[in-house]
């Protein structure tokens, strides 16, 4: 039983860091860049994606015995589209202002390749519990990525975080950061940072192995 629990934790952590959907697998880029011009928008988008991913992973994995192989992709898409429609109307009713700002990007969650990818690669082959755990991890990883990008862009582009001014009135905002080019540049630099960490780790491991062989 202890091992089962460890497995579940593994599935969760995997999505958050090691296989982070955005920073490592580079999936789901479109909503990633389009709505991260402020931290609040990023949070709303992340929450919407969270709900859709967890819901459809749950449904797909519980229906996995009954979905015929030939039409599985279309079935997944219809399931995802159903959840997205629910999210769309819910957001419109609860937070109309944010819904208006996100605009067409809420319905576009349907074609987020990360969600379909999880259904095909994981939820359709694993038990409900594992699938939900995997979805929770991936969605949290996505939310984390959205938030970090949104926070960086809002801080640099407006000098604010969640609408709270950080640097006082003398700060000259870098307007370019909240415009489209800023999205590309920030994500590019973050990916650069990640590959730098990866390279450092590799070098460290190599050095360790070298030292070990010398010591022998």
């Amino acid at each position: 039983m202890a091992k089962r629990k460890e497995d579940l934790q593994q599935e969760f952590i995997k999505g958050l860091w090691r296989d982070n959907p955005v920073f490592v697998q580079v999936l789901g880029m479109c909503p990633m860049l389009a709505v991260t011009n402020s931290a609040v928008n990023a949070l709303a988008m992340g929450a919407a994606t969270f709900f859709v991913l967890v819901g459809s992973s749950f449904l797909v994995s519980s229906l996995r015995r009954w979905i015929p192989k030939q039409v599985r992709i279309s079935t997944y898409i219809i399931i995802i589209a159903t959840f997205v429609t629910v999210t769309d109307f819910t957001l419109e009713a609860l937070v109309p202002k944010i819904h208006k700002e996100l605009g067409a990007f809420i319905p576009l969650i349907v074609v987020n390749c990360m969600i379909l990818g999880r259904q095909e690669a994981f939820a359709s082959r694993n038990s409900v519990r594992m699938a939900v755990m995997d979805a929770l991890g991936m969605a949290a990883g996505f939310l984390f990525a959205l938030l970090s990008l949104g926070a960086v862009r809002e801080i640099l582009g407006e000098g604010k975080l969640f609408g709270v001014s950080l640097f006082g009135p003398n700060f000259e905002p870098w307007v370019i950061m909240i415009l489209p080019p800023g999205g590309f540049l920030t994500l590019g630099l973050i990916l650069l940072f990640f590959s730098w960490i990866k390279q450092r780790k590799q070098r460290l491991e190599q050095r360790l192995a070298q030292l070990e062989s010398e010591a022998r």
Binding site: P181, L185, G188, L192, Q199
Partner: peptide, 19 residues
């Protein structure tokens, strides 16, 4: 530079194009 190769550089190029 090796670090830049791949997606990171493509995104930065895209950023400049977008500008």
């Amino acid at each position: 530079p090796v670090l830049l190769r791949g997606t990171a550089m493509n995104l930065i190029i895209a950023g400049i194009l977008s500008m």
